[in-house]
């Protein structure tokens, strides 16, 4: 995780376009100023950042499915459940499945596991819009390449 850039996904582990699923890995940093405040003497990964990790994973699935033609933006979070604490240094597996591909929006179901145990899950709504500008499209492709998501030739489908 690059918390200071709000880029929470480290790499795409598995992408199945035909099944409309993605699995990503994200390692919680061992140290961050965030943990100095959340909480003093008892560092925990903030739940909102876990939700954001699920949203970003959902987003990467959507951009892969639409071949980087359009950009998803988080619009709604439903049924988010934060089931157990996540601590610095832990390795997270973040999964998302496209539940519905609507006109200008998408619904996903996402979850995070740590050591095989479910730590949180949520149903998310994302608006799917044209990229606001070419620069953003290019930058997103750069980030995608860094995390192993090939914009031109997704792994499946």
């Amino acid at each position: 995780m690059r918390l200071e850039y709000f880029q929470l996904i480290d790499r795409v582990v598995d992408l199945k376009l035909s099944e409309r699923t993605i699995r990503c890995e994200a390692t919680v940093p061992a140290e961050s100023t965030i943990f100095e405040g959340h909480f003093p003497g008892y560092p925990l990964m903030p739940g909102v950042l876990l939700v954001e990790a699920m949203a970003q994973t959902s987003g990467w699935l959507i951009v892969a499915l639409n071949r980087f033609e359009r950009m998803p933006f988080l619009a709604a979070v439903k049924e988010a459940k934060l089931r157990s604490f996540v601590k610095p240094g832990e390795i997270l597996i973040v999964e998302a499945r496209l539940a519905h591909d609507g006109s200008g929006y998408a619904m996903t179901e996402a979850n995070i596991k740590c050591n095989g145990k479910l730590v949180c899950d949520a149903a998310l709504t994302l608006r799917v819009l044209d990229f606001p500008n070419l620069e953003m499209s290019k930058r997103m492709r750069d980030v995608a390449a860094r995390i192993g998501l090939n914009a031109e030739a997704p792994t499946d489908g």
Partner: peptide
């Protein structure tokens, strides 16, 4: 935004 939920259910 609420209409997206309605559209989803209609779809």
């Amino acid at each position: 935004l609420d209409f997206l939920d309605i559209a989803f259910a209609i779809d």
